[in-house]
Computed example of a mutant assay.
Amino acid sequence: MQHGVQRVNLSQEAKRLKLERDAIKTANYRQLTAKLFKLRDSEVYTIETFNETTQILLLNPEFYTMWNYRRDILIHLRPTIGDNDYVTYLNKDLKLVLDVLKRYPKCYWIWNHRRWCLFELEELGKVNWEYEFGVVSKLLEMDERNYHGWQYRRVVVKNIEDFSIKNSENSKDSEALILLNINVKEFEYTTSKIKKNISNFSAFHNRSKLIPKLFQYFKQVSVVPDNLKELHEKVFANAHLLLVHELELIKTGMYMDVDDSSVWLYLRWLLSDSFFVEDLTKEVYISILKEQLSIVEELNQLEKEDHKDHWDHCWCLKTIVFIKVLLAQATDSDILSEEIKSHLNTLTVIDPLRKAKYIEQISGRAKIV
């Protein structure tokens, strides 16, 4: 059994029959491919060729050349069939793409075609971004760590923002309020996904994009709505409060799964991004760095005690080095102290795949932060 799928042992006769069936399918696929390439090169754009691209894309949704040809066919058909039928074809393609995405949720070309269909519909004033938001939410329920889905969600949300602003009063305050409400929901969405599964790099990445925007939107509104006052007062009132809130969010994750890179990478962003650093006093920043260093060193010690050879934990030690370099920069101290060099030497042993990088850092030829 692999990935929960029971292995099936076929008899020799069953294998022979399967090979025969596969040979027929392969021959048909090659024949159809050759035909469509010839039609494409001859610039044939008809309903018949459009239907044939459907056949081959159902067999192989990762055939990006055929997605391109399909779009060319639709574009050339539009003057002939008229906008109403063009909209019908685009909506049918959205249904086709959704069916295929359920089977191939991480194929770039399928997501690209869906975006293209939607922007064509938007040009005609026939797009429904709210419906599309529901679609991508459903797809992320199926696979909450699918970065294609998260990237697509950002595209959809951006278009919902634009549509909402276009249909609102023309005041800066109302625009900021619209953007604030939309992005708070997205922020809460990332919170729910992270709490459900801390190992969700895409949710953390989306959160890092939302936080600076939300911080500005809260500043721009003249009056914070009652339903958002608590969030503003406890989290977004200032950068220090926000940073402490986020550090507390990931603290549990560090102990729950010390090998998960999502938490460690998000911690690095929190401690080094100019959005936070430039808004903190030097004393406060140094205090936060020391506190986080203490937490990571404690966790590293626990991991060493559990390891049979008492080795440092790789992610812990990398983060210790990272924080110590930030502290050195903040206090104008030696970045390549003997202590940091010692840690880097240890990393060459416990993380041999990146040995060359650590040697370059020790020599001073490569930056540590």
Rank of each mutant, 00 (worst) to 15 (best):
103 R>Q: 11
130 E>D: 01
100 V>S: 14
328 A>K: 13
140 L>W: 03
176 A>K: 12
89 Y>G: 05
258 V>M: 13
336 L>C: 05
93 D>H: 09
63 F>H: 15
325 V>Q: 13
342 S>P: 05
136 V>P: 10
93 D>K: 06
50 F>E: 02
107 C>N: 14
2 Q>C: 09
213 K>G: 05
12 Q>C: 10
184 V>R: 05
106 K>I: 02
139 L>Q: 05
336 L>Q: 05
37 F>M: 11
270 L>C: 15
318 K>Q: 01
49 T>G: 02
238 N>Q: 09
231 L>I: 02
322 F>M: 03
343 H>D: 03
33 T>H: 15
309 D>G: 03
187 F>Q: 10
50 F>W: 07
333 S>W: 04
87 V>W: 10
157 V>T: 00
74 L>P: 02
234 K>C: 01
116 W>F: 02
92 K>L: 12
60 N>V: 08
190 T>P: 10
77 L>G: 02
366 A>N: 13
178 I>Q: 01
118 L>F: 00
268 R>S: 14
278 E>A: 10
124 L>K: 03
264 W>R: 01
319 T>W: 01
290 K>V: 07
369 V>H: 07
137 S>C: 11
43 E>P: 08
293 L>H: 04
329 Q>L: 12
180 L>V: 07
231 L>H: 04
319 T>Y: 01
37 F>P: 06
309 D>C: 04
40 R>K: 15
355 K>F: 08
237 A>P: 04
241 L>N: 11
23 A>G: 09
144 E>V: 14
339 E>I: 00
250 I>W: 07
240 H>M: 05
195 K>C: 13
42 S>D: 15
227 N>W: 03
